[in-house]
Design a binder for these strands. Structure first.
Lengths: 149, 149
DNA sequence: TATTGTTATACTCTATAACTATA
DNA sequence: TATAGTTATAGAGTATAACAATA
């Protein structure tokens, strides 16, 4: 049976490679973030808030790509830890304005540094040039249209 | 605020890129496989059986990386469609020997071709050389030790 | 009527625990 | 005692449906 006619085994399939690489990085990131008391989703919320100053919960949900019902519990957890604060918008009393607290900014700085370290260590085996090329390729495949980050 | 100190937004994070690329490929593969009546997991089982001729359910589970309890329903579905057959091992009556049927081999050929097409179309925007380089990089990151496939 | 935040519910995926039969 | 297959159950993660407050 010629090689190109033999069905691909799991370990040769692109989907499996992407899945395993993602899972491995997720584990490494989780380990790096654990000391800072936030998980990946929570760190994302903090980072988006840091970029946008303040957003309503639906706006946050849209940015992050989760449902607004999922956002509720996420913000609950962050608020319980004192990392973000909710307040009613005076202009539209249906909306919650969510903002970073000082503790939240501090946590973000530390946790983001830890996350970057994990990402850097994860990519280290590739070398700088290959790693950059991988990221470029993934941006294309993921449908990321931004010219450069 | 210098660029390297600004927290990464979701779309710039490697984990997100891997996740989105994987999700996009998974959707494309699911669409390509749908006409053949199998999903990705089921196709994997067929491919592994084609490679190994016959395996017990625990051996299959080990190869694919799922629990043996998950394998039961997987095999159930394939058996209901007549794509695989179970029989008791005469040498160890605790074990089920799972084998491809003729219909299963036929389905495998067609579905695997469809899956490869989806993968090829997914990688097309990169060009051949970049795509091959991506796969090599992912093999390294996923912990894949095989020299070349 | 439509939207925001919220809660309750359901669904998917997968693993753990427990049972049966075999070894 | 230990293993293979099976079933029932539970947990994580996330979405849908429904409700109250507000626009």
């Amino acid at each position: 049976m010629p090689d190109h006619d033999r069905p691909s085994l799991p370990e040769d399939r692109l989907g499996q490679l992407l899945k395993r690489a993602q899972a491995k990085l997720a584990r490494a990131s989780a380990e790096a973030l654990a000391p800072h008391g936030v998980d990946g989703h929570e760190l994302t919320v903090l980072a988006v808030l840091s970029d946008a100053a303040s957003l309503s919960q639906v706006e946050m949900a849209g940015r992050i790509g989760v449902d607004r019902t999922t956002m509720v519990a996420l913000i609950d957890g962050l608020e319980d830890q004192g990392l973000v604060a909710r307040r009613r918008s005076p202009w539209d009393r249906r909306k919650n304005i969510v903002e970073l607290t000082v503790a939240g900014q501090d946590c973000l700085s530390r946790a983001e540094q830890a996350r970057r370290g994990a990402e850097r260590r994860f990519l280290a085996p590739l070398g700088e040039e290959t790693a950059a090329s991988l990221v470029r390729a993934l941006r294309v495949l993921a449908g990321e249209e931004r010219a450069h980050g």
